[in-house]
């Protein structure tokens, strides 16, 4: 057996799993969007002319973008401190970030039901303090979805950025300081430009993750805050509109892939050294 044949023989089973289990079904879903409606593009025309669908798409976009932005700011600040911490403290902080990351989405979203619910901690505390007379309804608002999403994705951002920041040699910030750069200037002119690839990777992960999430908007957003993920499920499993569901799926894939492509382009433009 030649090396080439052997290589393909070893690579084939997993390849078949991906092609048959993911490739074909997803292509079939795409096909449904063109064949399921009145004309080839009817499903998309219906999607984009429906005000409700546009609202859902825009809301999903907004939630994902805001989540990304907040995660970016807090994740970067925390990652910077973690990366600069002494070894022992650093490993504890990494454990503290990994733990929620490896805990399930349902459990983590559920925590916010307990916190933000009518009888939740926030309301109980505010009532006890006399700050409010009636419990606030915080669940099923865009705010509650975003808080839970940020909670979901900040650990991912921290871990991505810690790796990137650690790979920036300390000598470079020392060199900047020795050349007269104040800490702020050294950060803007040296650390930030070098962290850009990591910031982009982190942003892509968070954006696509929140754009396609299901459990969190289901629990904290409900019917009122329908997002693409929950909308897809509702179309598919409640109203059995498979063409509609397939169209939502296709839009999600396109947005996800477009984000990944656009961001990796951006990363290349901002980082001429890599090329």
């Amino acid at each position: 057996m030649t090396a080439r044949t052997l290589a393909w023989a070893l690579a084939m089973p997993a390849l078949l799993l991906v092609l048959l289990g993911l490739g074909l079904p997803v292509l079939a879903t795409f096909a449904t969007t063109f064949t399921g409606g009145e004309g080839p593009l009817a499903a998309y025309a219906e999607f984009f002319t429906s005000r409700f669908r546009r609202v859902v798409l825009w809301r999903t976009f907004e939630v994902a973008a805001v989540t990304t932005l907040i995660s970016l700011v807090f994740g970067f600040a925390a990652a910077w401190v973690v990366a600069k911490s002494p070894a022992r403290l650093k490993s504890w902080l990494i454990i503290a970030a990994v733990f929620p990351l490896l805990t399930g989405v349902v459990v983590r979203s559920f925590a916010w039901l307990v916190i933000l619910g009518r009888g939740g901690i926030v309301n109980e505390t505010l009532l006890a303090l006399g700050a409010i007379a009636e419990p606030l309804s915080m669940l099923y608002t865009q705010g509650s979805v975003i808080v839970a999403m940020v909670y979901l994705f900040v650990p991912l951002m921290i871990l991505t950025l810690v790796g990137v920041l650690e790979s920036i040699p300390e000598d470079l910030t020392d060199a900047a300081a020795s050349l007269g750069a104040r800490p702020g200037a050294a950060f803007r002119q040296v650390v930030l430009p070098m962290a850009v690839p990591g910031l982009i990777v982190g942003s892509v992960l968070v954006f696509t993750g929140s754009f396609t999430s299901y459990a969190t908007p289901q629990l904290l957003g409900g019917e009122q805050q329908m997002m693409m993920g929950t909308f897809l499920y509702q179309r598919a499993m409640v109203t059995f509109d498979w063409t509609g569901a397939s169209t939502i799926a296709a839009v999600m894939v396109v947005v996800t892939l477009a984000t990944v492509l656009a961001m990796s382009r951006l990363a290349q433009r901002l980082n001429p050294v890599a090329s």
Partner: peptide, 20 residues
């Protein structure tokens, strides 16, 4: 004094050139 106010020219073992 903080490092940036010392006005010292320093050459590093790793050179520490800014790669970007």
């Amino acid at each position: 004094l903080p490092p940036h106010a010392r006005d010292i020219g320093l050459v590093f073992q790793t050179y520490a050139l800014f790669p970007h």
